[in-house]
Nucleic acid binder design. Sequence first.
RNA 1: GGUCGGGUGGCCGAGAGGCGAGGCUCGGGACUGCAAAUCCCGCUACACGGGUUCAAAUCCCGUCCCGACCUCCA
Length: 462
Amino acid sequence: MSALKLYDTATRTVRDFTPIKKGEVSIYLCGATVQAAPHIGHIRSGVNFDILRRWLIASGNNVTFVRNVTDIDDKILQKAVIEKTPWWAVAMKYERAFSDAYAALNVLPPTYEPRATGHITQMIELMETLISNGSAYAPGNGDVYLEVRKLKRYLSLSNQKLDDLLPAGDADETYKRDPRDFALWKAAKPGEPYWPTPWGAGRPGWHLECSAMAEAYLGKSFDIHGGGLDLIFPHHENEIAQSEAAGSDFAKLWMHNAWVTTAGEKMSKSLGNSLLVTEILKRVRGVELRWYLGSAHYRSMLEFSFEALEESAVAFRRIENFLNRAVEVLGKNSEPIISKEFTKLMDDDLAVPQALALLSESLKSGNSALTSGDLKKIAEAASHIRGVLSILGCDPFERAYAQSGNANLSEAMDGLIALLLEQREAARLRKDFSAADSIRDRITSLGITIEDTADGPRWSVT
RNA sequence: GGUCGGGUGGCCGAGAGGCGAGGCUCGGGACUGCAAAUCCCGCUACACGGGUUCAAAUCCCGUCCCGACCUCCA
């Protein structure tokens, strides 16, 4: 019995979430336009919605999760010219880059991951519907526009008035009945890729694909539509306009994640390469980046700095260290438990930051139990921590984060270090501390940390 | 111009009328041959000016500052 509440952009309130079909949740997330490698802002969206998805699953729902790939658009075509390569090669290259980033951050693969170019047929059908019912028009040049003045309602998501909008600057308005009408379909210019349609050869406008694909995979009505804040207008407004004009109910609830900012500003694509996921992953592991991106509330801006990232990674290693020690002491891993308190927090619009305070309590209690040797409490703490981490997608024991090392090699290493530690222990016993410290220093300089515990020394690679 | 979101301690980051989230840093202590790890204690804030209230970071009015969107955007 879920009491999940989520913030709905459409009503600007936190409200009860009830799926259309009990136990089944359908989500459409606007994915990447594959025109450049992902930076950490792009991937935050993936992480935030992955947390939502994991929570819905943990709450007993079957989740159908659709995340599209926009593999044709103006920027991809521009990039193809710059990179002197076909547009589809550009799209494929960056789609792979996104896939790699999602995988590195343990973002669950979507149930379906449709590409725009694979759904031209559905888009044409949608346009036919819109033209035949008078919502859209083809002025004859190959373009197809949606006539926004004819809509029963428009701009309800962003709460704007049509007449307040600034007129589009560089739009070629000669074919538009109103400057605010937007393109469903764009006529191909010479040299551009095109698909044939009853109105001429061209390619999809940006918004059409999401309406077409959402209906294809989720039907005329589905539970949650998500994306970044900047998609509210125009992208999501236009999706609503198209789909409603075509007779769909479309999304029941709208969720938008906030940005990763630098110096208070939205991360822009012209910022350079330093914040690309691949670059960040040279500094911290995937699980640590995910922990960082997931740790702020999804509707709060996350002010990025390398200091904050490093700090966050250190905090995560502390948790990981406890879990590893718990396994050593207990001889086995503790099963994740989702506590009532945690459930209450997550049900409250995914209150992750407060859940982290809860985790912090478990960590303290677990570490204390480790000192006192209270096995029951150690297991309890480990279970609660793993419960939280499993929802955040940061459980270090998850397969996505498993070390793919050479088993023989680590066994040999284990033996070698044990040998050194035995010598050090012998030196300590005879109070030859300078010999003991010199062994420790040598080991430390190789990047291995030695800790003396009540149960003897333990080592870990830093 | 319209719409939306912010300003919280040295830093990050929650909360949204009362009983001061949490983490990091810093200071002190316990433990330890030393270190590391861990635990305990301490430091304590809500942009500014008014107002409402027994009580305001939270509500209201005003001001300042920052950011986002307005047909390329996570």
